[in-house]
Computed example of a mutant assay.
Amino acid sequence: MRKHGKRFNNIVAAFDRDALYAPADAAAIVKKNATAKFNETVEIHIKLGVDPKKSDQNVRGTVNLPHGTGRSVRVIAFAKGDAARAAEAAGADVVGEADLIERVKGGFADFDVAVATPDMMPSIGKELGRILAQKMPNPKSGTVTPNIGNAVREIKSGKVEYRLDKTGIVHTIVGKASFDEAQLAENLATLLDAIVRAKPSAAKGTYLKSITLTSTMGPGVKVDPARIKATATTA
């Protein structure tokens, strides 16, 4: 059994880990509990009432967080000509076509997100399918688009992707512990509203089964799913 240190145990003793909190209250508790010596990332883990094995119950999308993520995101762009110049102007860290494909094949992996224009996808799929794996550009996440400059700008400014894993859980981030409580609460509300709106029509029963908010080194704080439904439907 894992043993926690004095700092962690003192944090846990300061709030009720079994209680279900309103989103804003949970964000405030997580921020208060982020006492590590670095700027912790605030993460969310959402158990959904869907069957991840069924394609018609897949949950995947993107959302622009109003206050960004607080992270510096490295973006590479596969594009040619005017599209390549647009990606560079938008702030892409590396832009290329066949040369960039070869660079990634050779082991280059110092990036967080890959974007591409549609005409580049046949070559990318053939050459980099296994290498890129989950970083493969995808139209559903907005990373395959003819408007590649806009895609780069959105990602750089705080666009995050959410997707269901094999166990039916969505894991993503909502900001940094350095954000103030209102910024974290607004980012959290925006993300959860997007996930509620992304509910597959084939999903039956309870959709939001459990929601846990935490920081990198802090304990999980439970969010009340019932309050998320009320917020989302009245927004």
Rank of each mutant, 00 (worst) to 15 (best):
S210F: 09
R2G: 02
G205H: 03
V75E: 00
N10H: 15
K6M: 06
T35M: 04
G106R: 02
S157Y: 13
N33S: 10
K3S: 08
P137W: 06
A77Y: 07
G5Y: 04
Y207P: 04
A203R: 04
D18I: 05
S178M: 14
K80I: 10
T41N: 08
D56W: 13
A14I: 12
V73T: 05
V115W: 02
P146Y: 07
G49Y: 07
G107H: 12
A182L: 14
R227A: 14
G61F: 04
I211S: 03
A98W: 11
E43A: 08
T190E: 02
I11R: 08
A177G: 15
T145P: 09
A34N: 09
K47V: 10
K140R: 13
L132W: 07
R163N: 00
K32I: 04
I131V: 12
T206C: 06
A24E: 13
E40N: 03
N39K: 09
N33F: 00
H67A: 09
A24Y: 06
K126M: 12
Y21T: 04
N9K: 15
A235C: 11
H45C: 02
P23I: 11
N33W: 03
A98P: 11
V63S: 08
K204R: 15
K53M: 09
M121D: 05
I228K: 10
T206N: 11
D224H: 06
A36P: 07
G142W: 07
G81F: 02
N58Y: 11
A177N: 13
P66A: 13
D82A: 08
K126E: 10
D51E: 07
R103F: 09
V221D: 14
K176N: 05
I131F: 08
H4N: 09
V50D: 03
V104W: 02
